[in-house]
Design a binder for these strands. Structure first.
Lengths: 206, 206
DNA sequence: CTCATTTTTGAGAAATCTCTCATTTTTATG
DNA sequence: CATAAAAATGAGAGATTTCTCAAAAATGAG
């Protein structure tokens, strides 16, 4: 029986809770291997070693389990990210730290990466609190006079798109911290730092 | 009967060619309205006003028609882009021109946009010759001492991701040339131009 | 116009999945 | 241990889509 994030959360809970967690964990694993679209209910129950009908005791349809899985994982990532950010004041440093940590977290759990990347496309509010943190860091940078931008959803989409590229590439070709550093530099360039300054910030934090 | 790009290409051809073109055009239209995943064979034949079985005289399955449609459209976009680039020597100007024209072309034909954006995710070599042009412009910029980057696939993915964001946003919220200019500026920032210089290049070309 | 060839047609067989529900199994409680 | 409530089971009904193929229609060369 494959442990997984939800199953661990559910230790101590009743049987119902554990079964539900097994379904969620199976969903997370399968999205990584087959993608969201190709995923069948029977794949999920097979992987969780449960009967097909059991699925319907817990979720009404595939969307529901996908949404619940994605939001659960996103919330956990948010929690982990948040923990490392206290005490950093300089906005560029905050952006670099958050970017590095985010990439590092999802690459350590590639199953999470697939769900988050897939979810980002289909589930509207998935990145919402992550985006909220990013936005406040950008505004901080503008206030500190370090970023030469106006903070819009459009700008945030661009930054998230760059991060997505970094994750996708490293999922395919293996973890590569130089690539992550490169993305951090490029995000800072986008935010208006000169190439030299961007490099200095990223190097200083290694 | 809805004309469409492939149908126009096929004028003068025999009946077989015209039927095939009708299927391709229907596919293009439907990808825009329903997406690649939800697309059914019978949707295609209905839209093309043909019998269901006719599809199988021309394509073996859905993937085949999608691939053919996407590559056909991509090749046409390449051709149009290429035409506008002759005589521009300055690399930053080339990048801005290509970016602007590309965005403009797909926004004028939103059906194409949907296919290209969808295809970029699923079809490996779709952007290949477009990428080839981009790569040579980047190398030109490095040679001219204007871009402060090393030219890698990774860098190209980042630039293409930014362009994708611009297209997606404008597909949703309507054409917005200021947004396009913004993306051009940001691409130049990414390539190592200072914010001031990036702005100057984009403004100069308006 | 005729006739062989090419193409289209659409009914239905086959393949896939989803979802239901009567029954069985497990769990928790006294 | 007995019993009621909760949960899981899996066979199969239902829904949807793909794909086949014999027959019909269209084409075009002579």
């Amino acid at each position: 029986m494959n442990a997984g994030y939800f199953r661990n959360q559910a230790t101590g809970g009743g049987k119902r809770q554990r079964t539900r967690a097994a379904l969620l964990d199976a969903t997370v694993r399968l999205v990584a291997s087959k993608g969201m679209e190709a995923l069948k209910i029977s794949d999920i129950t097979d992987a969780a070693e449960l009967a097909n009908g059991t699925f319907y005791n817990h979720f009404t349809d595939k969307d529901e389990v996908l949404i619940e899985a994605a939001y659960g994982i996103a919330a956990e990532i948010s929690r982990q990210l948040d923990a490392d950010m206290t005490g950093i004041d300089d906005a560029p440093s905050r952006v670099v730290t958050a970017t590095r940590n985010f990439i590092s977290i999802v690459l350590q759990k590639p199953d999470w990466a697939a769900l988050i990347l897939g979810g980002a496309r289909h589930l509207p509010h998935l990145g919402e609190d992550a985006s909220q943190y990013l936005r406040s860091d950008l505004e901080r940078g503008v206030a500190q006079g370090k970023f030469d931008v106006t903070v819009t959803n459009y700008l945030m989409s661009q930054i998230l798109a760059l991060i997505t590229v970094a994750i996708t590439m490293q999922l395919n070709k293996g973890t590569d911290t130089a690539m992550t550093d490169q993305i951090c530099e490029n995000i800072l360039r986008l935010l208006g730092l000169t190439p030299a300054k961007a490099r200095r910030v990223v190097e200083a934090m290694r």
